[in-house]
Amino acid sequence: MNMRAPLARVRGHGSAKAGAHHWWAQRLSAIALVPLFLWFVASLVFVATADYATAKEWVSSPYNSALLILLIGALFYHAQLGMQVVFEDYVSTPWLQVASIILVKFLALLLAVVAIVAVLSIALGG
């Protein structure tokens, strides 16, 4: 029988002061994505139906390529945080849950890098 008081048992095993990190990171990336997506959709209206040369010129402008890279970074960071919660909530098999989370994090990084390299090669490649 454990005679220790509840306080004594939790002392030293308490919060690592990192419990709110996921929550905070999700909100921070959400806040960043609000202006970025408003800009992106407004631009899409002009670019979505553009021909190759116009689209290339749009991405090549330093202003647009910088914002696009920020958008891609914030988007995939936010996406993998959100997907992590979805897997945590709906995948109950522990190994499958961990595997899904690892996979979605790696995929998010891969897609972000591919998209950023594409933007850079359009912007710098000429």
Binding site: V59, I72, L75, L111, A115, A118, I122, G125
Partner: peptide, 9 residues
């Protein structure tokens, strides 16, 4: 979005 950018590149 990734496909569109990759295709453009």
């Amino acid at each position: 979005l990734v496909c569109w950018l990759a295709a453009l590149a």
